[in-house]
Design a protein around this nucleic acid. Structure first.
Lengths: 204, 204
DNA sequence: AATTTTACATACCATTGGTATCATATCGTC
DNA sequence: GACGATATGATACCAATGGTATGTAAAATT
């Protein structure tokens, strides 16, 4: 039990993160106790509070990890689609990846459901919008610059589209509406194209 | 201190609801203790747990009260607008009222932020969609029946539009984006009309 | 080699939501 | 109008929780 090297400290830290991530995802933040986390990770409370200032700080770290993983994948998909110089295709490709992430129980529970209440609504929306600013807003800004809609709508449109995907993800995860993923995506695309006043071009 | 009539019991109940509502709104569910509630209400824990099964049940009651109050007002606005037999106007009028409610700190914190995490995501979205089913979905179904968009999009469209309004409300409440209410409403209307493939008619 | 810092372990604490119990006033029934 | 049942609510208590205080030994730094 004499693990004291910095490498093994990192290992401890990772064990805590993995255990907490699984428990937060399965049971939610509020009903997951510190004791349950350290038990699952095979460490003690001392170790946890050494690596993280508080339960909330631990949650925030996991939240950011998840966002980063999703962001990397969404960017890659959008970049691949943009290789054909089609901004709509890139936008939709990124959105599709985001929707698939937002449907995963882990991402949904931690990032979307518990996030706002644990981190505070203001902080959560700040972080969410920072994400949108790097992903969706460039797309809407480009469309606006091409005259598809007024520039003043670039930011609100991105925000509302992002929220639409989140809502679709909730509904899909629960599957209590009888609406399929393809139907949501079709509606989303129609909203986007309708917003842009472009009669249906060749959709991806 | 000898209040024991059923009328005064109702008074006690209302005092608890009012105190809890104010505290949940100001501090959030998690950080508001039962002790703080009963102190503010001028009653004891015995009274609170007599009238409500649990802290969560108390929260749920307040949640439903707020939804009901909002629903009444939104319906009235939509009905008034529909007197001119304009479904779009009715839809937009109801949406405007909803947006104004969703911007209030009390509604936003209790219904939108803490709701999903306290009541559980599944329950919350179930209740939210029940609301949408009585308000937004009839509107989108009507539009679909008129051929504005495929019928299969009526439900997903309503869901996504509702989520768009929620997101707009968050952003407006925080005011950290520089987007005005009118800009959000204009974008929302454009999304709705774009979805419906109707080139801008005379908007309200 | 001396000292400081890192990395944990253990014992403890105040607060929390919730329960058990008790007291008393009101209400229906006769 | 007596009386048991019930509604109302006050008090004492409990287990669990997040977090802290403190201790300790290994590693890093000087």
């Amino acid at each position: 039990m004499a693990k004291r090297t910095s490498a093994q400290a990192a290992e401890t830290r990772e064990a805590i993160l993995a255990a907490a991530r699984a428990l937060f995802s399965a049971d939610g933040y509020a009903t997951t106790s510190i004791a349950a986390i350290v038990d699952a990770a095979g460490v003690t409370k001392g170790a946890l509070f050494h690596h993280f200032d508080s339960k909330e700080a631990l949650f925030l770290q996991i939240w950011q990890d998840l966002q980063l993983e999703m962001d990397v994948e969404a960017r890659a998909a959008a970049a691949a689609a943009f290789s054909k110089f089609d901004h709509f295709a890139a936008f939709l490709a990124g959105s599709r990846v985001y929707l698939s992430w937002a449907t995963r129980p882990e991402y949904q529970r931690i990032v979307l459901v518990d996030g706002p209440s644990v981190l505070g609504s203001a902080r959560w929306h700040g972080l969410e919008f920072d994400l949108g600013k790097r992903t969706l807003v460039p797309g809407t800004k480009y469309m606006a610059s091409k005259g598809h809609f007024p520039k003043a709508m670039a930011v609100p449109a991105a925000l509302m589209l992002q929220a639409s995907l989140n809502a679709a993800a909730y509904a899909l995860a629960q599957d209590q509406l009888g609406v399929t993923r393809d139907q949501f995506l079709a509606t989303f695309e129609r909203m986007l194209r309708g917003l842009s006043q472009i009669s249906s071009s060749k959709a991806g």
